[in-house]
C-alpha cells in the first residue's frame, strides 16, 4: 500500500431514534492509501453516507478515531472541522449543488474565498473540458456538465481527497461514464485520492480498493490488483 492517508479505527456512529438507539456505523475500521481510487459499496441504509459524512467532517462520530494525514479529526470543534473541510476535502454531490446565481467559472472561483492557493479556475474548467461554458449559469448547463463543474470546483481547492456521494446518481449512464472517467483521470494523472460512494457494484471493477458495507458494518475490504479503466467496465 502507498502511504496510508485515511484510517478509520473502531468508528461508531449512533443516532437517538426516540425509544431506541440506532447504530448507523458499528465499530468500523479500515484504511485508504494516498492516490487510491476507492469505491464504497452497499445497499440503501447500509451506512455509506454516514461514513462519507464522518470522513467529510460534516458529522460527529460517537466513538473511535478517524485519522486523516496523521491527525485525528474526531472531537474537533466546529471551527476546526470547517478548516479541515476547507483544506482536505473536495465534495462532489449527487445533485451537484452548484450555486444557481453564480456562473460555472464563478462557482469554481468561489474556492478563492475558502483556501489560500486554489488552482486557477480557468485551468480546472479546462481539465473538465468545459472552457466553452465558463460564463453559463448552472440552469443553462446539462446535468453531466453541472456535475463536471461541481468536480472542478472540488478539485480547485487542491484537497487531500475527493469525496463523491453517488456522483452519477442523477445522470444517465453515458453521461455518468464521462463523469466517472473524469474522476478516474484525476486520480491517475493528478494523484488525487478519490472516494466514491455508490450502490452500483459494477464500479468496483475500476477501483483500487473496494469497501463493502452492510447494516453499519464492514463486510469486506478488498484490493483490486488490476483495476479496469472506466470505459472497459461492462455497464
Amino acid at each position: 500500500m502507498k502511504r496510508e492517508i485515511i484510517r478509520f479505527q473502531n468508528v461508531t456512529r449512533e443516532y437517538d431514534a426516540g425509544n431506541h438507539v440506532l447504530k448507523a456505523l458499528d465499530n468500523v475500521s479500515f484504511a485508504i492509501g494516498e492516490g487510491e481510487f476507492v469505491v464504497i459499496l452497499g445497499p440503501s441504509g447500509a451506512g455509506k453516507s454516514t461514513l462519507l459524512n464522518l470522513l467529510g467532517g460534516m458529522d460527529y462520530a460517537t466513538s473511535g478515531e478517524i485519522i486523516v494525514n496523521d491527525k485525528n479529526i474526531v472531537g474537533l470543534s466546529d471551527d476546526k472541522l470547517t478548516e479541515y473541510r476547507a483544506e482536505h476535502v473536495g465534495f462532489v454531490f449527487q445533485f451537484y449543488n452548484l450555486i444557481p446565481t453564480l456562473t460555472a467559472l464563478e462557482n469554481i472561483a468561489l474556492t478563492k474565498k475558502i483556501v489560500k492557493n486554489p488552482i486557477d479556475a480557468k485551468e480546472v474548467l479546462e481539465l473538465v473540458d468545459l472552457s466553452d461554458h465558463a460564463n453559463q449559469f448552472p440552469a443553462q448547463l446539462s446535468g453531466g456538465e453541472q456535475q463536471r463543474v461541481s468536480i472542478a470546483r472540488a478539485v480547485a481547492k487542491n484537497p487531500t481527497m475527493l469525496l463523491c456521494d453517488e456522483p452519477t446518481g442523477a445522470l444517465d449512464s453515458e453521461t455518468g461514464v464521462i463523469v466517472l472517467e473524469m474522476l478516474q483521470k484525476l486520480c491517475r494523472v493528478r494523484g488525487k485520492t478519490v472516494i466514491i460512494v455508490t450502490h452500483n457494484s459494477v464500479l468496483s471493477e475500476a477501483a483500487d480498493r473496494v469497501i463493502r458495507i452492510k447494516n453499519g458494518k464492514i463486510r469486506e475490504v478488498s484490493k483490486n490488483p488490476a483495476p479496469k479503466a472506466i470505459r472497459e467496465v461492462s455497464w
Binding site: 460534516m58 466546529d78 470547517t82 473541510r85 476547507a86 449543488n97 475558502i114
Partner: peptide, 16 residues
C-alpha cells in the same frame, strides 16, 4: 439554504 449548506460543506466559515 442549499447554497449555504454547500458553501459550509466546502469549508466556508460561518462568519463569512
Amino acid at each position: 439554504e442549499r447554497s449555504l449548506a454547500t458553501l459550509k460543506v466546502m469549508g466556508l466559515k460561518s462568519g463569512n
